[in-house]
Write a protein that binds this DNA or RNA. Structure first.
Length: 502
DNA sequence: GCGATCAGCT
DNA sequence: CACAGCTGATCGC
């Protein structure tokens, strides 16, 4: 209890109940609903809030990892030249006899010597401090942003903060999607779940903090788009068990964007952790051999839509709907330009389906063509073309799916196209009234531009999350999204308890 | 001039 | 709201 009491000293909170590590405070006030007891150094919770579930893990987390002998550091089953890793190895410390709090970067604030700040620009720091008596500072005087939402942490606003606890895998020298915290003490392998900016943020050609593990497709994108030194990148094939730093690791298809993986860790003592990265749970996952043969003890869960109001159709249904609308629109108005909005990667199956339904190619700009070609998907590569005039199906950045921008875009093609039919595929296109009934979706129209928001989600719906969790029956769930708000955390935790009731 | 970071915005 | 970014300003090299 002492450690946690110390943590509350000073004005260091960055959110009502999370410290700057994204770690929940213990409520200590008398009116607090939670109660805690200390038993042989571990903290046990008596009630059922997020914090209590969180601290009261019921597992002895101390003594997480023995000091390593001089045994081979990397024992991947697949042949790779690891010699590059020797460089800078002296920087990497081994994890020896640490408790859970240390493991997760939760340490007593002892002063600058304990702060792993890689020389933040002093002037910037000063500048940010100027405007705000109400601004919140950490012990070093840096203004630390409020963690209103997970996104803030993912985007590493106020970078060089300590890595949040939920990005570290206890009992291993691993982190997941933690590239924007500089060198993380004790981390000997940095896992990347998928190639979206809010997860790879911090990776650049100057990356030198340690080896990066990801799927082969993600590896290609990291090299191609971010120019990361290939010597740091270690692709792991899906559905193949590797041994990394003595831990068994398997990448599973995440049903998110191309290359996205669930990461399964199997420790020497038999404990299993599953980190979902971002994913859309589906029945197929429940037949994966590794999930059937080894029960997951701790689940790091993508809780983006962990709220019963999020009910959206399957991707297949949405794709079918989009194809139907497209066909009927083109039958009535043959000179229609069909536009699909997309971020860097993801949502490919929406335009692949339209391409199939209409029997047309897919046009997009050179930078996206390069990325899509790198997937190595024959059914996609063969359909991509570099001339807008040659096909009525175009893929544009989702940010340009506004009526004015699309009218401008249409003008470029003169008489060839006279109207635009656009689709904005996102989970946020759900509506409580519409729910699963796609036929109720109405487009927004302005002049000759029609835009459909379609609930094509690459994250699990509430019921998909429930089904997945009830299949896994983990001992413990650590949400990784929407954790910046105490009310959200408690709500999610109460869903988890409901789902896992015996 | 280039790349990285950050506030603000959708 | 915020999926997963983008834009523009600023700073260091």
């Amino acid at each position: 209890m002492e450690i946690l009491t110390d943590e509350r000293e000073g004005d260091i909170s960055i959110s009502e109940n999370l410290d700057e590590n994204g770690f929940p405070f213990l409520p200590l006030s008398p009116e607090s609903e939670s109660r805690y007891e200390e038993t042989d150094g571990s903290i046990l919770a008596v009630d059922g809030s997020f914090v209590s579930d969180f601290y009261g893990s019921g597992t002895d987390w101390s003594c997480l990892r023995e000091g390593e002998s001089d045994q081979k550091k990397l024992e991947l089953e697949r042949g790779t030249d690891w010699s590059c890793l020797k460089e800078g190895e002296s920087d990497r410390k081994k994890l020896v006899q640490r408790d859970l709090f240390q493991m997760w970067g939760f340490k007593k604030r002892g002063g600058p010597s304990e702060c792993r700040v890689s020389s933040p620009p002093a002037m910037k720091r000063e500048k940010r401090r100027i405007n705000g008596h109400d601004s919140i500072s950490d012990w070093a005087g840096r203004k630390v942003p409020r963690l209103g939402k997970e996104k803030t942490a993912e985007h590493c606003v106020g970078a060089r903060r300590a890595c949040p606890f939920y990005k570290k895998i206890p009992g291993t020298p691993f982190t997941v999607d933690a590239f924007c915290y500089g060198l993380i003490e004790g981390c000997e392998a940095y896992f990347l779940s998928h190639f979206h900016h809010d997860h790879y943020g911090g990776l650049s050609k100057r990356w030198s903090h340690g080896p990066i593990y990801c799927t082969p497709l993600t590896a290609r994108l990291v090299k191609m788009c971010l120019s990361v030194n290939p010597l740091f990148i270690h692709p792991l094939e899906l559905d193949t068990e590797y041994v990394v730093e003595g831990i068994k690791v398997t990448m599973l298809e995440a049903n998110h964007c191309p290359g996205a993986a669930l990461i399964h860790f199997r420790l020497g003592d038999g404990r299993c952790y599953l980190h979902t990265g971002d994913f859309r749970a589906c029945k197929l996952m429940q037949s994966h051999p590794i999930l059937l043969s080894h029960r997951v003890n701790v689940l790091y869960l993508d809780t983006t839509y962990c709220n019963p109001k999020y009910r959206f159709p399957s991707k297949e249904d949405v794709v079918g709907f989009v194809a139907r609308i497209t066909k009927s629109t083109l039958a009535k108005q043959p000179k229609t330009l069909v536009v699909v909005g997309a971020y860097s990667i993801g949502k490919e199956h929406v335009y692949i389906a339209i391409s199939k339904a209409l029997g047309v190619n897919i046009y997009t700009d050179a930078s996206r063509r390069r990325i899509l070609q790198s997937f190595g998907w024959p059914e996609l590569s063969g359909k991509i073309c570099s001339l807008g005039q040659s096909t009525p199906l175009h893929v544009l950045p989702i940010s340009s799916l506004r009526p004015e921008s699309l009218q401008q875009y249409l003008k470029k093609y003169g008489e060839q196209f006279t109207a635009v039919l656009a689709f904005r595929p996102t989970g946020w296109s759900y509506s409580e009234a519409i729910g699963n009934q796609l036929d109720l979706i109405r487009p927004s129209s302005k002049g000759n531009v029609k835009i459909y928001g379609v609930p094509y989600s690459e994250h699990s719906s509430f019921l998909e999350l429930r089904d997945f969790v009830q299949f896994l029956k983990p001992d413990k769930i650590i949400p990784t999204v929407n954790v910046g708000n105490a009310a959200n955390r408690d709500k999610m935790q109460s869903h988890f308890r409901e789902w896992l009731k015996t």
